[in-house]
Design a protein around this nucleic acid. Sequence first.
DNA 1: CTGTTAGCGCCTTCAC
DNA 2: GTGAAGGCGCTAACAG
Lengths: 332, 332
Amino acid sequence: MPRPPKGVTIADVAARAGVSLSTVSRALNGNTTVDPALAERVRTAAADLQYTASPLARSLVLGRTQTIAVVVPDLGNPTFQAILRGLSRAAAADGYHVLIADSAESVDEERILAVETRRRADGVILCAPRMPQDELDALVSGLGPVVLVNRSAGPGIPSVRADYRAALAAELAHLYDHGHRRFVYLSGIARSVANAARLEAIAAFRAQHPEADVAELPGGVDFDSGAAAADAVLESGATAALAFNDLVAMGLLSTVQAKGCRVPDDLSIMGFDDIPFARYTTPPLTTAAVPAAELGARAWTAMRGLLEGDEPAPPVALRPELAVRGSSGPAH
Amino acid sequence: MPRPPKGVTIADVAARAGVSLSTVSRALNGNTTVDPALAERVRTAAADLQYTASPLARSLVLGRTQTIAVVVPDLGNPTFQAILRGLSRAAAADGYHVLIADSAESVDEERILAVETRRRADGVILCAPRMPQDELDALVSGLGPVVLVNRSAGPGIPSVRADYRAALAAELAHLYDHGHRRFVYLSGIARSVANAARLEAIAAFRAQHPEADVAELPGGVDFDSGAAAADAVLESGATAALAFNDLVAMGLLSTVQAKGCRVPDDLSIMGFDDIPFARYTTPPLTTAAVPAAELGARAWTAMRGLLEGDEPAPPVALRPELAVRGSSGPAH
DNA sequence: CTGTTAGCGCCTTCAC
DNA sequence: GTGAAGGCGCTAACAG
């Protein structure tokens, strides 16, 4: 029902209203002043025919698609889902559509998809955590309107990110204040910027608290990596474990408990991200709440600015808030 | 780097190769037989100029966009995320792009978005669990290629769904076989088809086992609704609770345990969906594993068939598999 | 204020 | 096999 019967074009409307194509175009776009009587005739004709201008034809002539592309490494990752959600709703509120592309964690695909989707959209919002900096720089340089999520690349490119460094620093400080002196950090992907930021925070912490001991344990990004690290964590003698993200923390939490370790009495565990289920573990997971949906919304805001010809927005760094829950407590 | 400097058009390629526009078009599309030598010249010219045909112009003249639209009620819902993920990857494998639209749980928006995105895409895949059947029928009738997820609407409209009825029946049977006779079902949204399917399964179960008692408790779809139902469940005297979905089950699980109820000894709890975290609760949640990603992939397959002019694919109903984990056990 | 004329960039009959 | 011309549906100069 709600669709134009076959292919009603602007010419049909013009014919029915007894005016020219341009008049229809103008009346419908409220562009130039059109005689109110004619405008009305056009509008009713359009309504009768259920006419809507073809977005394709419009895009071609206007040079803009009212669409933005979003490239993410994995649609299955809760963080990107939240970003996408915030982004999508913010863009929709401004009448923009969202084209998504899942690179399946492949850097090559990320590059290809960015270029390809760019041609169907007015700009691209890029989440490319693993792409080497030089490749990223090269990519964005020729891409037109780009907003980076959790990355940066030169002053002209807006970037929204979560301040991982500050967040991990807050976690460490919180634990330190509660008497913890021996920590273990389960690192994520070694070469990611997100991991680098965590390491910076750790380095600063070590400098500030020479008596504290922060061990690093290589790991992955998922539940299983956390589970796999359980023995090593327990053997380390640490009283507190900081995981690269909530999934890792949950894997660790679940596994150490199964081995008889009491959380938080024997071991405090902190995650990172505050994915929806973090509050539902037993005990609920203490974590740094990354405002992913807001990150997405901010990414859109920056993109909209670019599209409207504003100066590139300054980088925004959202400070994750510490969500203290049951998985962390004082050291014993 | 990887982008055409400004706006390289087919004419530029033609000029550089010393041929006509048509030849370029043909050579690049491998359409008609083109002199191999010329074709090669065209290809190198195109490569030199980094030329790629404008998808917009192509879409306009060809009448297809190589894009499909997906309308979901909430991008934040793990089930739709999984569907989207499977869909997106399957479509990408066939060279199609995905335009997403989040209706924010609004039926009105669903309708509007479906119509609107349809014009920018070759077809739309619709997840509209709450839309009344008559509205749905009216909507799809004029929409062109449509595939429905977890809904159906007439023989011409392909539909992929999870067989919720069979799945809940399997859950009930499993519990019954383990000695349970008093059940409580936490219903989801009353008017949803997904809930109706569950109720059918319950009705059949009651008919088959008159001695069993299945109480219904009205509820919602999220963790909090499950938590809120905890007291009522405990007071009901049931030995097994079946939740509308995993979120509800997790809320219930967490809350009854906090009240001292032992799971599964005092109460067996079963969820529905098998969202990624279901296996990570304590104890791990028994649930019916809805193959959401495959549902998405199948939706794409059906859509591709439509796009290629095949007969509408017959409805597919994927039978969720029972994932028996720690939250369920024999009745005591 | 309105109609006519060019394109936007591409593909596809038509003649050659 | 190749080029020239027309048109996909629409908007933006131009006249009038």
